[in-house]
Computed example of a mutant assay.
Amino acid sequence: MAKTQSVRASLDKQPHEVASMFDGVARRYDLTNTVISAGQDRYWRWMTRRAIAPRPGEQILDLAAGTGVSTVELGKSGAWCVAADFSRGMLAAGRFRAVPMVAGDAMALPFADNSFDAVTISFGLRNVADIDLAMREMLRVTKPGGRLVICEFSTPVIPVFKTVYMEYLMKALPRVARAVSSNPDAYVYLAESIRAWPNQRQLGRRAADAGWAGVKWRNLTGGVVALHRGYKLGS
């Protein structure tokens, strides 16, 4: 059996490195996420859909959608949802899903101004080289009055739990990934990128600085994940 080439991005987040890394994990990406999150990924997707509250007839951009599993969840609402990701390997792995898919970079979205009623990005903003530029791009393609939901790993709010969680990230997560992932070294980067990520308040401030109004957040799973919400001024 041929071995899968080991690809791990560095924390400077060079786009070609990150895209190549995700191409390498695409084959078993969804399974690995479910295993390392102990099934919480399904709950986080459901809560993200609730936060977006998509309605029939709306147009929703699901950015960093990977294989499209999150886009399928959003589509249950009756809204028209498009999956966008800069890893062509991820999109190819999800091509069996009945959702439109577009290859695109979060820092230069291939969509016109004021195109979408809502834009969401789950567990992908952390992998963008310039997150402030990406949030401004998401603002550009959102209609006035439209909304943003960011679902991302964050900082646990219970001190004892935070300590246990950080130990899991750096030690147990890579071990679990070796058992199920097609590219386990990528999950070392995953753990490191989570530790280096801004906390809830810091990310909220940066979203507001990018132009999003009414930015608020909600912790999930004790702050392991946070949902940040905002909207674009205008009507």
Rank of each mutant, 00 (worst) to 15 (best):
A51Q: 04
A51T: 05
A51W: 04
A51L: 04
A51V: 09
P54K: 07
R55M: 05
R55V: 00
R55L: 08
G57M: 08
G57Y: 09
Q59G: 13
I60M: 04
D62L: 11
L63T: 07
A64N: 11
A64H: 09
A64I: 06
A64R: 07
A65S: 15
A65P: 06
G66I: 12
T67I: 04
G68T: 09
G68D: 03
V69E: 14
V69H: 10
V69I: 15
S70W: 05
S70M: 14
T71M: 00
T71R: 02
V72N: 04
V72Q: 10
V72D: 06
V72P: 02
E73N: 09
E73F: 12
E73C: 11
E73V: 15
E73P: 10
L74P: 03
L74W: 03
G75A: 11
G75Y: 09
K76V: 08
K76P: 01
K76Q: 10
K76M: 09
S77F: 03
G78Q: 00
G78W: 04
A79Y: 08
W80N: 13
C81T: 14
V82D: 00
A83D: 10
A84E: 01
A84S: 13
A84M: 15
D85H: 12
D85L: 08
F86G: 10
F86K: 03
M90S: 05
M90C: 07
M90Y: 12
A92P: 10
A92C: 14
A92K: 13
A93T: 00
A93Y: 02
A93P: 08
A93W: 02
G94L: 02
G94T: 10
R95P: 05
F96Y: 15
R97D: 02
R97T: 03
R97Q: 02
A98K: 13
A98Q: 13
A98G: 05
V99G: 10
